[in-house]
C-alpha cells in the first residue's frame, strides 16, 4: 500500500437517490464527483465523467427508485463501465436496495433467476466489489464471484426499539416464515418474545390467509421484515395481530419500496407506525403518510465505504450502528 501512490475515494452518484449520496459524502467529508447523466431524446442513457478517476477508489451509489428499476440499473451499469474504461483502480457498486432480489430462484418452470442475471451484469460491466443492505436472501452473495458486503439495518433497528420502547413489553413478529431468521435475531438481542405469521400467497402482490403462531396479547407487536412493497402483507399481519390482542402494532422494514397503493393501504391500516430506512428514495411519501418514520442508514454505508477503502474490517458494522 505504502509503495503505491495514495488513492482517494471518488463517490459517484446515480440519479436515483442523490439525497443518500449527499449524506454519505457529507459523512465522509468529501464531495460527490462531478458527473452528469441524462437521457437522450431517444431514451438512451448517457453518462459523462467530469473529473479524473484514474487509479482512484470509485464508489458508485445507486439505489432503485420505485417504478424506475430498469432505468436505474442501466444507468448503474453504464456508470460502472465508464469508470472501468476510465482506468479506475477499483469500482465498488453501492446498491442499498439490490434490484430483482426477490427473483432469486427458479420457482416455476422457465422462471428467470433475474437476481443472478443482475449479479452477472454488474460483474460484466466491471464492478470489483458490491456493498448492499439486507439482501432479500443472503444466498444472492453466491451469485457473485466478487466480494459482496451485505450490511444490516438490524443494529439501527435495535437502537430504535431500545430508544422508543421497553423491550419487555414488545413481541417481535415475523410476517412470514422466510423472515423468521431476521426476526429471531432481533428478538434474541432484545431478549423478548417472538411470534410468527404464516401466510399463503396465491399470486404475486396478493396475500392470502394468515395464521398467527405465538402470543402477542397486551404487548407491542413489532413486525420485522426486509422490504415493504405494496404493504398488503404488513397490513394484513397487523390486523391479525390486533385481533389476537396486541396493544399496538408497528413495523420495522429495511427497504420501503412502497409501490402501488401502499400509502393509502398504510393510512387505512391499524399499524401505528411503519419505520423504514432511507435505502430507497421515498420522495413525497413521508408527507403523504404520517405513519411513516425514516431511519437514516447513511452513517452505516459511509462507514462501510471508509473501512473498505482503508482495508479495515467491516464486520463491526454487523453488530453496531455508527451514530
Amino acid at each position: 500500500m505504502s509503495a503505491e501512490m495514495a488513492n482517494e475515494i471518488k463517490l459517484i452518484s446515480g440519479r436515483s437517490h442523490p439525497e443518500l449520496s449527499d449524506k454519505i459524502a457529507k459523512r465522509l467529508g468529501i464531495e460527490v464527483a462531478r458527473t452528469i447523466s441524462l437521457n437522450y431524446s431517444n431514451q438512451e442513457t448517457s453518462f459523462t465523467v467530469g473529473e479524473s478517476v484514474r487509479d482512484e477508489d470509485v464508489f458508485i451509489v445507486q439505489s432503485t427508485a420505485t417504478g424506475d428499476v430498469n432505468e436505474g440499473l442501466m444507468e448503474l451499469l453504464i456508470m460502472i463501465s465508464a469508470c472501468r474504461t476510465a482506468s479506475a483502480r477499483r469500482i465498488t457498486a453501492v446498491i442499498p436496495n439490490f434490484p430483482y432480489a426477490r427473483q432469486d430462484k427458479k420457482d416455476k418452470s422457465r422462471a428467470p433467476i433475474s437476481a443472478r442475471l443482475v449479479a452477472n451484469m454488474l460483474q460484466t460491466a466491471g464492478a470489483n466489489h458490491i456493498v448492499t443492505c439486507d439482501l432479500h436472501a443472503s444466498q444472492i452473495q453466491g451469485f457473485f464471484s466478487v466480494p459482496v458486503d451485505n450490511l444490516y439495518a438490524e443494529p439501527s433497528f435495535l437502537r430504535y426499539i431500545r430508544e422508543n420502547f421497553n423491550p419487555e413489553d414488545c413481541v417481535i413478529v415475523s410476517p412470514d416464515a422466510g423472515g423468521a431468521k431476521r426476526a429471531t435475531s432481533i428478538a434474541d438481542h432484545l431478549n423478548t418474545a417472538f411470534a410468527l405469521i404464516h401466510k399463503e400467497r396465491p399470486r404475486p402482490n396478493v396475500v392470502g390467509r394468515m395464521v398467527l403462531v405465538g402470543n402477542v396479547e397486551d404487548k407491542v407487536a413489532i413486525l420485522v421484515d426486509d422490504m415493504a412493497d405494496t404493504c398488503g402483507t404488513l397490513v394484513k399481519a397487523a390486523a391479525v395481530l390486533k385481533e389476537n390482542g396486541a396493544k399496538s402494532v408497528l413495523a420495522l422494514v429495511t427497504h420501503g419500496i412502497l409501490s402501488g397503493n401502499a400509502i393509502e393501504t398504510l393510512n387505512g391500516s391499524v399499524l401505528s407506525a411503519l419505520v423504514v430506512t432511507n435505502t430507497v428514495p421515498l420522495g413525497d411519501k413521508v408527507q403523504r403518510c404520517p405513519k411513516l418514520r425514516v431511519i437514516d442508514i447513511s452513517p452505516t454505508i459511509a462507514e462501510a465505504i471508509r473501512r473498505t477503502h482503508n482495508g479495515e474490517s467491516v464486520s463491526y458494522l454487523f453488530t453496531h450502528a455508527p451514530v
Partner: peptide
C-alpha cells in the same frame, strides 16, 4: 443544453460509450 455542468478544471470530460457494454450484457445474459 448541458447547463451548469462543468468538468473539473484541467480534466477533459468524456461521455461514456455504452455500445460495448450492451454487447457484453447480451453475451452475459
Amino acid at each position: 443544453h448541458v447547463g451548469a455542468f462543468q468538468a473539473k478544471p484541467g480534466y477533459k470530460q468524456w461521455v461514456a460509450q455504452a455500445g460495448t457494454l450492451v454487447a457484453n450484457l447480451l453475451n452475459c445474459a
